[in-house]
Design a protein around this nucleic acid. Structure first.
Lengths: 212, 212
DNA sequence: TTCTAATCCGAGCATATACTCGGAAAAACT
DNA sequence: AGTTTTTCCGAGTATATGCTCGGATTAGAA
């Protein structure tokens, strides 16, 4: 068992499965990893456990992945794809609308929905996986969210007098992210989600329109 | 090596060191754990490594701690004590002032200072230690921060017309926390901290005073 | 000093985990 | 059918880590 630092290459697959059979095996491994992470945490994610839960042999696992880090990387790739699909779909829906307040609510609710759907897995990824921030998919997701926000603001500026200070974008992104993450991963069950999200959306809109 | 869930008792020390010699040993172990966490991450934190870095034997370590989780718990206890001391000192300073804007800036800057001082250690604690949220000190810190904010708002209400919606407290705490955490743990080095903190403080004050 | 309790020591055992390797089985290709 | 490539297998090896235990050493009490 190696301890310490990882090189980027550790996140890539050894080889791509070409036949349908092997593609199913790889999928089973990734799904098994997701289940183990959600149910037992990162400490429970051993290569042998993944193979057992996936119903394949340990040898097959190492045929495609150099280690468990690569499996996690692949899993995060899938989550990224799902999130991006939701994001673009949501943007198409609100593309015609010009109501900033409505658009903001829809955007935050959609984001919250994806996070909540995978909240047990997300909790482990965020709070336990040491190399999450170095994963290509993680970096890509951050860029995508930032881009969406950026474009949304530019679009809003065409219809409203929006005041954007030097650090507005950064503060809006980090504070909204902090509230959503806390709501999904750490808030007590008694906390009502929808009202809080709507209040957050109102707050962000008020921030932008404060000069009016 | 056990995997899975821990009971609360795992976070307590086996016995308290009574003589000065043993107290020094325990301190050395905790400091060693802090260094290892900051430099190598949670994966590098093995009981043998802690003993080696602390300059004591592995036997001595198990004399006082049931496992590495208890050492981490003790370490977080120390961080909690330092943070609470800072917090109360800061409150005493701003106790006489009635300027909400100034008080908010001082409070956020002080909080940011403590976080920044231990940022490498804090990053590992937050993003890698699986049981951080279950630690008594963590729970206590959250309560303390919430109390400070609550009291600050009540005090502000005596001098200003402060608008506090049903979820204002929660949203302020989580969004501010998210921004500060991101700033300290994840922001690129080019990001200027002080201006961002001041902008955040202004934003929070504007939120409270929006009805004026 | 003598006695008791606290402290310290570290080789060694038990276990868990990562990962290999030689070969069988299945699929695709000619 | 014959050949090649892909896929699958899982016992076994090397290594790392948690943790014990019998005994040496030191500090304080009587």
């Amino acid at each position: 068992m190696r301890a310490g630092k990882w090189q980027p290459a550790d996140f890539a697959m050894k080889k791509a499965p070409s036949q349908a059979r092997s593609r199913a095996s790889v999928d089973a491994m990734v799904q098994a990893a997701a289940r183990i992470l959600a149910e037992q945490g990162y400490a429970g994610l051993t290569t042998n456990a993944v193979a057992r839960v996936a119903g394949v042999s340990i040898g097959s696992l190492y045929e495609y992945f150099p280690g468990k880090e690569a499996i996690v990387a692949r899993l995060v790739d899938d989550l990224l794809a799902e999130t991006l699909a939701m994001l673009h779909g949501q943007l198409d829906l609100t593309d015609n609308r010009n109501d900033l307040s409505v658009a903001m609510r829809h955007f935050l609710r959609a984001l919250h929905g994806v996070m909540r759907k995978h909240r047990r897995l997300l909790r482990v990824l965020v709070f336990q996986v040491p190399y999450l921030h170095q994963l290509p998919a993680t970096v890509q997701l951050q860029r995508a969210l930032q881009d969406v926000l950026q474009r949304g603001l530019e679009k809003a500026q065409q219809h409203y007098r929006v005041s954007i200070g030097p650090h507005t974008l950064y503060l809006m992104a980090t504070s909204t992210g902090g509230s959503l993450l806390h709501l999904v991963l750490m808030a007590p069950p008694s906390m009502p989600h929808e009202p809080v999200i709507d209040a957050l959306a109102d707050r962000m809109v008020a921030w932008l329109l404060e000069g009016e």
